[in-house]
């Protein structure tokens, strides 16, 4: 084999390739990665922190980190794993920083500007009742996810909204698949208790 690097299994990941191309000076590769991951990371951070505004800032920060790490970048995982780990750590730091001056827990329900406006326009349609019910459900879901301990929250969001496999969650959160199983079991159980209290939906 001409290059020892060819033994690196992560080189088959097209996104790792893009990152290496960017390392070689190709700005377009970086922008391709951004277009692919920015919306996903934004939503991941949004659901984890509960604030759309904060999510926008933190997602920018994730890419600044990726950018500045590019010169010393060596693929040690799939690109997705790497970038979600960065996003998770940045969000955790931010949440902990805000613990002293708490990021109000009800913010997610107040800062709905975008969605709420769109939904308000929809109230003219005959499905207004249905829409209102959906808004209530959405708010309940936010509250339920927000109430989960951090680790369970990360695992649940990665599984439910990012369609990660257990193995991918384990890699991103630096834990075994067994630990992921137990985390998700408890997370799902907690969500069930919040969202379908005994008898309510029977």
């Amino acid at each position: 084999m001409p290059f020892p690097d060819n033994t690196n299994p992560y080189l088959s990941d097209p996104d790792v390739r893009l990152m290496l191309d960017f390392q070689g000076g190709d700005k377009a590769s970086f922008e391709a990665l951004m277009r692919k991951y920015y919306p996903r990371l934004l939503n991941f951070i949004y659901r984890f922190t509960g604030s759309a505004e904060l999510a926008e800032d933190l997602t920018q920060e994730v890419f600044l980190k990726v950018y500045s790490a590019s010169t010393a970048y060596r693929p040690k995982s799939k690109f997705q794993t790497w970038v979600y780990t960065i996003a998770k750590n940045i969000s955790l730091n931010e949440l902990r920083r805000h613990k002293k001056t708490p990021l109000s827990l009800d913010e997610p329900f107040l800062s709905e500007d975008g969605p709420v406006q769109r939904q308000l326009e929809d109230t003219q349609t005959p499905r207004a009742d249905e829409q209102m019910l959906r808004d209530e459900t959405s708010a309940a879901v936010r509250a339920a996810i927000n109430s989960l301990p951090e680790n369970q929250r990360v695992a649940v969001i990665l599984r439910r909204y990012e369609q990660f496999s257990y193995e991918e969650i384990g890699q991103t959160m630096q834990m075994s698949v067994k630990a992921v199983k137990s985390l998700l079991s408890r997370g799902k159980e907690n969500l069930k208790n919040k969202l379908t209290p005994a008898g309510t939906f029977e």
């Binding site: 459900t137 909204y161 799902k188």
Partner: peptide, 22 residues
């Protein structure tokens, strides 16, 4: 119940990034 609550999570919709993020 687990299935239903898991499905309910889908009601929390995605947001779009603010345009011009690149």
């Amino acid at each position: 119940a687990l299935e239903r609550s898991w499905k309910m999570l889908g009601e929390w919709k995605n947001i779009d990034p603010a345009p011009g993020y690149v």
